[in-house]
């Protein structure tokens, strides 16, 4: 059963410290595990209802930008970087993996609209606990012109094919502030086919 509003936990940062409010777990009694064949005790269940409080740190801007319809990458701009000078990273990297200098933000939204292409994909009906995506999940890996990495995401409409041109869509209404706020649809998909809360 979904939690009611006052059973949920919320966190803010006030004066540099986490300030949790609300409920973070509901205690549930453990249960014995009996062997039905012998009637003997074999173990117990240990229910755990936990909430993690996680900092995005230097990646927060990426996750916040998704809700504003922007795909923000980073670029190494260290001229002395032997292997990655001017390399664009998506997934976003706070530091260049080669020279370990801080990267600069790079707005990839237009490039993604014009060049995103499916590198590989998979369709699966399986998922793990806590999954929020509709099934079947259409995982896609997306190439962008001039980007040295290949982003993992999911296709929200149509059937994926290797080489297919896709465009990014963003959950700008009620964003979750997680990677699922970013999705893709085949180029030419009409706005009416986008999932609830998503825009181009």
């Amino acid at each position: 059963m979904p939690k009611t509003e006052n059973e949920k936990g919320y966190v803010n940062i006030v004066k540099g410290r986490y300030k949790p409010k609300g409920k973070f777990h509901i205690i549930e009694k453990n249960q014995p595990i009996f062997d039905k064949d012998t009637g003997k005790l074999a173990g117990v269940t240990n229910p755990r209802d936990m909430t993690y409080i996680h900092s995005y740190g230097g990646e927060a801007i990426f996750f916040e930008s998704l809700g504003k319809g922007k795909l923000i990458a980073t670029r190494c701009e260290n001229e002395k970087c032997e292997t990655a000078y001017k390399s664009i990273f998506m997934p976003f990297r706070i530091y260049c993996p080669d020279c370990l200098r801080k990267t600069n933000l790079y707005d990839l939204t237009e490039t993604a609209r014009k060049t995103a292409k499916i590198h590989s994909y998979i369709i699966t009906h399986r998922s793990g606990a806590f999954n929020m995506l509709n099934k079947p999940i259409k995982f896609i890996n997306v190439e962008f012109d001039g980007v040295c990495t290949i982003l993992m995401s999911y296709l929200s409409y149509g059937d994926p094919e290797i080489g297919m041109r896709v465009v990014p869509i963003f959950k700008t209404k009620d964003p979750t502030y997680t990677i699922i706020d970013l999705s893709f649809v085949p180029e030419g998909t009409p706005e009416s086919k986008l999932p609830e809360g998503f825009t181009f």
């Binding site: 998979i122 699966t124 399986r126 793990g128 999954n131 999940i137 890996n141 993992m152």
Partner: peptide
């Protein structure tokens, strides 16, 4: 399956289905 998927990147991959098999299957 969720716990196994936590061995992927928890910000960039795990929320995508919480299913590790998918990350390899591509």
């Amino acid at each position: 399956n969720h716990l196994i998927s936590a061995a992927a990147d928890k910000d960039w991959e795990t929320p995508l289905g919480h299913i590790y098999t998918g990350y390899y299957a591509v």
